[in-house]
Every structure is written in C-alpha cells, then in structure tokens.
Design a protein around this nucleic acid. Structure first.
Ligand code: MN
Ligand code: MN
Ligand code: ZN
Ligand code: ZN
Lengths: 142, 142
DNA sequence: TGTGAAACGCAATTTAGTTGCATTTAAAAA
DNA sequence: TTTTTAAATGCAACTAAATTGCGTTTCACA
C-alpha cells in the first residue's frame, strides 16, 4: 500500500476530513525520525501553507489521537506521530522520549515503557511523561 | 535565621552578587509550593520590576544551580527552587513532578525519585525528567 | 572610597501561538 | 450528478513569551 493511501486511511479512521494541508502535515510527522515543532513542520510543508491552518491541524490531530505532544525543556511544543492504537478517546503513548544534547533531536523510544512510581497519599496519576537527556545513537563518538 | 538571611546566603553560596531583583525572585520561588512561569513570578514581584532583568535573573539562577526548569506540556517554561545540594556544576533534582489537571499547578515531589530505564544500545542518558498528570492532593474529591 | 566587571533598565525586536470572520470545500444527502 | 451544510481554510490583526543591543547604575573587592 502506497504511503499516501496510508495517510488518507489514518485520517478517515480518526474521523477527520481529507484536506491537502492535513495530508501534508501528517506525512511530515509520520516520516520524521524525531519530534517536530510547529515551525519545523511549517518549513517542511509546501511554501505559502497557512500557519494558522497548520496550528489548527495540529490541535485536531492531537485531539483525535493521530499525534502526541512531546515534552521538552524549552518553550516550544513538539509533536510526533502516535502509535496506531491511539484514538480520540485515549492516547497509549506510554513510551520514553530521549533528547540528544548534541543534535537536540527528541526521539520516541517506542520500545521503552515508562516505569511507574509510588506516589504520596492522595495523588492520583493518570498520565506520564518521561524525557531523558544525553547523547543519541547518531551522535555517539566513534 | 530569618528568611531574608537564608536568601542572601544562597546567593553568596552560588557566587551571585546581591541585588534587589535577585533576592525578590529567589524568595518568590523559594516560597512557592508549585513551579512558576516567568509571567507568574513577575506578578509576585514589586510593581515595575523590569521583565528583562527577571528573565536574565532566571537564566543565571538556573546556570548556577539555584533553580531548575520544570517540564510542562505547554509552551511556557516553569521554574522551581532547587534542593540545597545543587550547584553550577551539577543539578541533583532527580525527583518526579506532578501536574494537576484540575488546578494546573506543578508540584515537585521531592521524595519520589525518578526510576531508571534500560535504553537501547548506544543511547547514553545523563538527565531525566518525569512528569505525572492527574489530580493533586488539594483537588481530590471529598 | 575608588574601580571595574556585573547587573540593570529601557527600547525595540523576535518567536510562538491565537482570535475573529468571511470564504471555500469535503462529504453526505437528495 | 447536483445540492446542501458543517467543517476547514486563509487573511488580518492580535497576544504572550522571551530575547537582543546598548548606555547607565551598582555591587564587591581592593
Ligand atoms: Mn513519542
Ligand atoms: Mn522540581
Ligand atoms: Zn544526537
Ligand atoms: Zn490540583
């Protein structure tokens, strides 16, 4: 199945209408090996793509479980494509993220599950975000 | 020992000069039960305190190990006072943070240490950030 | 008390993201 | 296939957060 068909199917499966911007944004995120900010996504879209539409697209993607926010230590919000089983009702991105201090990319470590912790009385956790900092595979000295 | 003396000593201990803004900012953060953004700190400072000076103060505090960034899922940066043993050379804030979905405050759970994870080959972690989401102690239904 | 580096404070600028509203369009109905 | 309409778009204007440059002030040490 061609990549463009998969993109279209993702939109349909999550109850979103097909539009040019949506397909483009989803493709950029699906193909990126690391999380992207709004500005970085914009750079990878066709020129003159409207920035407001992009941000509204990111919001609807997040709401419908197509992408997830990736926490960062800076003041920009980053996004990555969700695993297939996420939906509008619930996100299942319980994996660790890794930010490289050298290349600054943030990777989804989909195979590393966030470990649970024991909380003080009366704190009830529902979501977990875990971000590691260090040197990524690509940036390791030889 | 009065609180103001402790504030002054902290600055000295971390090699920072005594200034009105610095003492004020450090006091606000030291007394806050939850992490604060730049804007929130500004509100708690004397009127007409210069915003640029505030941001430069936060930067120097972070660099010298007086405060640490608290990751959030939004596009604002938050800060909290560090534990006493942090310095310019190294931060030792290896505790979990908790963001309440009701009051939106982010608490340092200083007694809960971030659990380690096993990483894929060639990823080397140095820092860890762990943010829980849920309902905090104050906001629990009776 | 004098000196110099550090910190301040103002103006201007940048960057990220938002709001309101008129126009266009995808998708379902006729 | 055409019609219909709610959803999505695109423009202008705006807000909020943070930064840069630069002349002035002040802290810390001699
Ligand atoms: Mn991820
Ligand atoms: Mn903390
Ligand atoms: Zn790297
Ligand atoms: Zn709460």
């Amino acid at each position: 199945m061609p990549a463009t068909d998969r993109i279209s199917q993702s939109l349909t499966r999550h109850g979103l209408r097909q539009t040019t911007v949506r397909r483009a944004v989803l493709q950029v995120l699906a193909e990126s090996p690391y999380a992207l900010s709004g500005g970085e996504i914009e750079q990878q879209l066709p020129p003159n793509t409207d920035r407001i539409t992009l941000y509204r697209t990111l919001k609807s993607f997040e709401d419908s479980g197509l992408i997830h926010r990736v926490i960062d230590t800076t003041d920009v919000v980053r996004y990555a494509a969700c695993s297939i089983e996420c939906s509008a009702d619930a996100h299942f991105d319980n994996h660790v993220h890794f930010k490289c201090t050298n290349c600054l990319h943030i990777y989804c470590l989909n195979q590393v599950t966030i470990p649970a912790v024991t909380l003080p009385a009366k704190f009830e956790a529902v979501t977990r975000d875990y971000l590691l900092g260090g040197v990524c595979r690509e940036c390791q000295p030889a």
